[in-house]
């Protein structure tokens, strides 16, 4: 440490005509502040928000389609879709008759709070989008980058499908220790893949002992009741 000004450089590395400014601020401070505003905005809409994180192709959109089919009659559901390109996911959700908007990040590997801020205003303009019970935010398919950005959600959900293999929690720890719920999806494919469910659950719990773990198939309906009960419970609070 430099004795003259207390900065981290060695004395020979700089002159003292310069000025050291103490900042001590998170690089994510702007995102976190915006996320806080989003959370208030979402609560004013009456909703609980769930941020869904997974690799591409884990079944996030299919899970949403089946969830809307099961609960769309009793809960007001809205969806913000995040993808790098196309509005195909939003089209699938729109076909289920709930308000949805598509955010395309144009190459960025994650959604951030500023995009969600914009998304909330767009969603409010959709028919039925201003008052909701449940808001799903389907993040860009990526198990790494989305984990760093608070969007203003109330719950974070990480999803791994059976064909991806059971070692995701160990390989991508941040997504698992920043989430409250871990869903193992496509369990109807268990006969065809080597996916020891109990081992995967135990490994995820080692990373985050507070995780609520569910195994389900949106196609066969196996384990789906537990998921629907969970959603009803978070909306009741």
């Amino acid at each position: 440490m430099c004795d003259a000004c207390g900065c981290d450089l060695k004395p020979e590395e700089h002159s003292h005509d310069s000025r050291v400014v103490e900042v001590h601020q998170s690089l994510l401070a702007a995102n976190t502040a915006m996320a806080k505003k989003n959370r208030v905005h979402i609560e004013e809409m009456g909703a609980v928000a769930i941020n869904m994180i997974s690799s591409p192709g884990s079944g996030k959109t299919t899970l949403l389609e089946k969830t809307i089919e099961a609960l769309g009659g009793s809960l007001r559901i809205g969806v913000i879709e995040g993808d790098i390109e196309t509005d195909r996911d939003a089209e699938r959700i729109r076909a289920k008759g709930v308000p949805v908007i598509q955010l395309t990040t144009g190459g960025a590997c994650h959604l951030d709070a500023a995009q969600i801020h914009k998304g909330l205003h767009l969603l409010e303009k959709e028919e039925g989008g201003a008052q909701l019970d449940l808001l799903f935010i389907e993040n860009v398919g990526n198990l790494v980058c989305p984990a760093t950005f608070d969007l203003g959600e109330h719950h974070r959900l990480v999803l791994v499908s059976v064909p991806e293999g059971p070692d995701k929690p160990a390989k991508y720890p941040k997504a698992f220790h920043s989430s409250q719920v871990f869903i193992i999806s496509k369990t109807d494919l268990l006969p065809y893949f080597d996916f020891p469910v109990e081992e995967a659950k135990a490994e995820a719990l080692q990373l985050n002992p507070d995780l609520q773990v569910m195994a389900l198939s949106a196609t066969s309906g196996e384990g789906f009741e537990q998921w629907l009960d969970y959603l009803k419970e978070v909306c009741a609070h």
């Binding site: 900065c7 981290d8 310069s18 050291v20 400014v21 103490e22 001590h24 998170s26 080692q206």
Partner: peptide
């Protein structure tokens, strides 16, 4: 075997030297 990570998620700009 259940161990929780403590803190360590900081991403902080501490100080900047300018002239």
């Amino acid at each position: 075997t259940l161990l929780s990570p403590v803190g360590g998620d900081d991403l902080v700009l501490r100080q900047v030297e300018m002239e």
